[in-house]
Each structure stands twice: as structure tokens, then as C-alpha cells.
Simulated assay, not measured.
Amino acid sequence: MSIEEIVQTAEYPLADPSFLDRCKKALDSAGVLVLPDFITSSALEAMQNEATQGQSKAYFCKQSHSVYLTPENPLFGADHPANRQVVSSKGCICDDDVASESPLRALYDARLFRDFVKHVTGESALHPYADGLSSINIHYAERGQELGWHFDNSSFAITLLIQKPDAGSDFEYIKDLRNADAGEMNYDGVAALLDGKTKPKVLNMDPGTLVLFRGRNSIHRVSPNESDKTRMLAVLAYNSEPGIELSESARMTFYGRLS
């Protein structure tokens, strides 16, 4: 499929410099860029069919982790925000399970889309993962499954909602709750959130919505799915340098295999 068959280019002119500048300004200001109805109805239907057919191959896992995604810190107790555990549970199919003719792959590989992402994020280059599993993932959240509170290790993330459940699975976040580059972890602010004293923002989106999110300093989660309809979400991941692989331990944890 061509990029014009996948993206609503009349509404989202990816080659228009003024549109690119507006998107960059929005991401820089809010830490999140939400583009509703980014995908054409025919491409979205193809993505939904692909995700539904691939669900039986998904690797489902459940992990406990800290919001910082770091090992236990012996300097603090188990109840300290650095060590308090949250739960993430989901299914995932990997890049090598995404068909060569998939509109997801066509979008990921399209130079126009990569140039758009580069401009909006300020990256000088974008490269796929070298491990063959991590560039395009489709995530599944069935009833009760969730993505626990965490900060990302990467500077930005790109997601595309394919199917929305009937209840739950809300994307919640707080912008700039820490400053990782300065080493300021804001344990008090994290504790207030985990204790329910701080209310996060909720990002509402429908299928076909593309989201660029800066999650390195903005804590976020996806609340539990409260319906029998599976949440399906594509994650499009790039690197600023070529030849980067997701670590073997991370691949085994999230995918259950190395290749």
C-alpha cells in the first residue's frame, strides 16, 4: 500500500513544512502529540484483521517492576518509590510476525513518515532495530491486563491504536514528573501518585489515532482492561543509531525468544 492509502494525507499533509512545525511545537509543549483518524478506514481495517489473526501467536507475560524499570536499590526499603513494584501484563507479537504486505510495515518503512517523525522529534536519523523482533510490535491487553506505571528509557515512543476495548485501558500520564538527565528522580512526586494523592491526565483516543509521546520524564500507564474486547496497539520503534538491538534479557522477558 502507498502512504496515501494508509494515512489521511488531506488532513495530515506529512510533507507540508508548516504542518510539521505545528506538530513539533505541540510535542515540545505538551510532551504528547495526538493525531486522531490518522489512518484511513481501509488501512485500519487491514490492521485490525492482521492483529486479530496474529493474536494466537502472541507471547503473553506478566512482570513486576519499579516505575523506574531498574533493579532493586539496596539503599532503600521495599516501600520506597525506587523499589515499589507495579504489574505489567500483556501479549505481544514481534516484527517478524508482521507481514511484508502489512500497512503497518509500509507505514514504518515509508520515507515520508520517517521524515515526519524526524522533524517532529528533532532526531537527525531513524533506524530500525537490528534484532529482527523489536521494530514493529503489536500489543494485546485482554480483560484485567494492564501496563503499570513507568518511565520510558527511550526519548520518545510512537503508538497506533488498532482496537479499543469497551471499558478501561485508559492511557494516563503526568508530564515531566522527573528529570532523568539531571538525576532528579522526584521520589516524593512518584510516591504521591502511587498513593493516589495525585490525579493523572487521561488521554482519550479511538482506533486509528497515532500518538507520539515523550515518556522518559513523563510517568505513564495503561489502566486494566475492564471488558472482554481486547485492546490492540501497534508500537513503531526506531533508533537514532544503526545496528542497535534490544538486549537479550529484554527480548526474553517481553517476547519469550531471542530471534
Rank of each mutant, 00 (worst) to 15 (best):
A192M: 01
V67Y: 01
M1T: 14
G243D: 04
Q48F: 13
G208S: 10
A141M: 13
H220I: 05
V98Q: 05
A51R: 04
L203P: 10
E72S: 15
P17T: 03
L193M: 03
K197H: 06
S218M: 03
A141S: 12
S135M: 00
M232L: 06
V222M: 02
P103L: 07
E241N: 09
T209D: 05
R84N: 04
L75C: 14
V86F: 04
I158L: 14
L210M: 10
Y68R: 01
V98C: 08
S227P: 08
N137H: 13
L236C: 09
E184A: 13
S135R: 04
E4G: 15
S134W: 14
A43R: 05
K201I: 00
V190L: 05
I93M: 07
D16H: 13
T121K: 00
Y140E: 04
M252A: 04
V235E: 10
L104C: 10
H220A: 01
R111C: 14
S88Q: 06
A141Q: 13
R111D: 13
L177N: 08
V120P: 02
A130I: 03
A180E: 12
L75Y: 15
S100H: 04
V7K: 00
P13G: 11
V211S: 06
S134E: 08
D109F: 11
Q63E: 15
I162F: 07
S64D: 14
E45P: 12
S42E: 15
L194H: 02
L193C: 02
D176N: 09
V86M: 05
R114E: 15
S227E: 08
L233K: 02
S124W: 15
Y173H: 02
I244S: 12
A130W: 11
D95E: 12
I219S: 08
N217A: 00
E146L: 10
D95C: 02
L44K: 03
A167G: 12
A15P: 12
L177P: 08
S169N: 10
L27F: 07
A99Y: 06
D97K: 15
A157F: 13
D37G: 10
L20T: 09
D188S: 02
E50F: 03
G183T: 14
Y59S: 07
A110V: 10
A78G: 05
G144R: 00
S56E: 11
N137M: 13
G91D: 03
A191P: 03
S29K: 13
S18M: 07
K62F: 01
L33Y: 03
T121H: 06
S223W: 00
K24N: 08
S240Q: 13
S259V: 07
E72M: 14
W149S: 06
L212A: 06
A191R: 01
P17F: 13
I158K: 13
